[in-house]
Computed example of a mutant assay.
Amino acid sequence: MSSLPFPVRVAAGLVVTAVEEVQALPRTIVGLPITAASRVLQLSMRAQQVVTELAIKGDTALEGARPVEEAPSWARFDEDTDDRVPVLRAGGNPSGPAGRRLPAESNNGHARPLDRPVLTAEDVPDETPDALPGYESLTIAQLRARLRGLTVDQLTELLAWESSHADRPAFVTMLTNRIATLTAEQ
């Protein structure tokens, strides 16, 4: 078709492309700031990813050089000590070890009931409580949904079972509060 040399044809193609771009410039100039901003953000996010990957690799490399404490010395958990859980002693005074009076709140600021009864082996059934079959597998939400239909005696049986078996703080608190509410209503 054309007998012009290849470099001339390439140069003509560049000129036509430049003219087309200049003609499209009014349409593309509107989006230019957005395009530039998105490219800058994309580059900065990629740089953050690279830095984070390097930090992770550094942590992995240094992991063996420093022993990690299994339980930090500053961490305190409810399971670690029982002296913060008030127990109702003879005479009705909540106290801890050696008769020391305990505060109404634990170290994390959540109130704890001071009148939690001391339970004996006779008070606690070995199997699932009769008051609510399948109780041991209920979630806290499922228990909350079933509380209104239970009497004080049934709630006391559930509290005794919970205290001697799983002793989950949320369950104990919910049962204790419901017993207190029903007792106050009577």
Rank of each mutant, 00 (worst) to 15 (best):
L138P: 03
E127N: 08
S3H: 12
A141L: 13
R144Q: 10
P7A: 12
L119T: 00
R112V: 15
G149N: 15
T173A: 15
A141C: 07
D130H: 07
L54M: 12
L62C: 12
R178E: 07
L143T: 01
G96H: 03
G96Q: 05
P133T: 00
I179R: 02
I140L: 13
A131T: 05
S95F: 00
D130C: 04
V40G: 05
S44M: 07
L175C: 02
V87Y: 05
A98Y: 06
E162G: 00
R39Y: 08
V30R: 07
A65C: 14
D167L: 03
A131S: 14
N108D: 15
A61C: 14
V19R: 01
R76I: 14
A55T: 09
H165W: 02
P113G: 12
G92Q: 10
V50E: 15
S164M: 06
Q48P: 00
P7I: 10
I179Q: 01
Q42T: 08
P5F: 04
Q49I: 11
L138R: 02
V15Q: 10
E63G: 14
P33I: 06
A145L: 04
A131R: 06
Q42M: 12
Q142D: 12
L102Y: 02
L43N: 14
P103F: 08
T81V: 11
R46K: 05
M174D: 00
E127Y: 09
A104L: 09
D82C: 06
E79I: 13
P26R: 00
F77Q: 11
L175P: 01
S164Y: 03
A24H: 06
V124F: 05
R84V: 09
T173P: 00
A61H: 13
A121D: 08
P5L: 09
A111K: 02
A145D: 14
P133E: 02
A131Y: 05
V118K: 15
R66Y: 12
S137M: 09
L138T: 04
G13Y: 10
N107R: 12
D80R: 03
V124S: 04
I29Y: 04
S3K: 10
G31N: 13
E21I: 12
R144H: 01
Y135S: 00
V22P: 02
V10K: 15
E53A: 10
N107K: 11
S38P: 01
S106G: 15
T60Q: 15
H165Y: 02
A184T: 09
P7T: 10
Y135P: 02
L14E: 14
E21T: 11
A160K: 02
S137V: 13
A98P: 04
R144A: 01
T120N: 09
S3I: 12
S73R: 10
V22W: 03
E136N: 11
